[in-house]
Amino acid sequence: MSACTSRYDGALIRRLMELTQAGLPLVDNPWAWIGEQLGLDEQAVLDLLRQLQNDGAIRRIAAVPNHYRLGYRHNGMTVWDVDDAELPRLGPLLGAQPFVSHCYRRPRRDGWRYNLFAMVHGRSAEEIEAYRAQIRELLGEACRADEMLVSSRILKKTGLRI
């Protein structure tokens, strides 16, 4: 199988996800090890990874820290009721803040007015409150209401399941 056909090969991608979801093996050449499992040579594995990254199917290939263990014990899901017309401008602005890890537009529902979500992380309750205040300032008049939902307990957190 060549890498250039792999773009649409869902089974291959799934295998790749399964093989790497617990982390790359600590061997001299982890790509060659993956290749052996997938029946690809090392270059094809590297090409596949680059292609998936360019396509946005892989966010990044990196050392993924456990932020909680590194002292970022506080997280707040800030939710904002923002004028829809302003989202194309304000969404990217929030997403670019260094203290925001995820920033999404989500639908409004009956009893749920918030359409913009920004996850903030910090080492204290005060720190994440300060981030919320900074976001409020960035949004200005376009924001009609907001809340911050702090996490009181992580009940389950696993990596991506497939």
Binding site: L26, G56, A57, R69
Partner: peptide, 26 residues
């Protein structure tokens, strides 16, 4: 390699490798 092992044992590193975009996996 020792550093990677140490970080993983202490759970300071979740893992090393590709991070897939959830929305693309179904």
């Amino acid at each position: 390699l020792d550093s990677l092992r140490r970080l993983q044992e202490r759970d300071a590193l979740s893992r090393i490798g590709p991070v897939f975009e959830h929305s693309r996996a179904g």
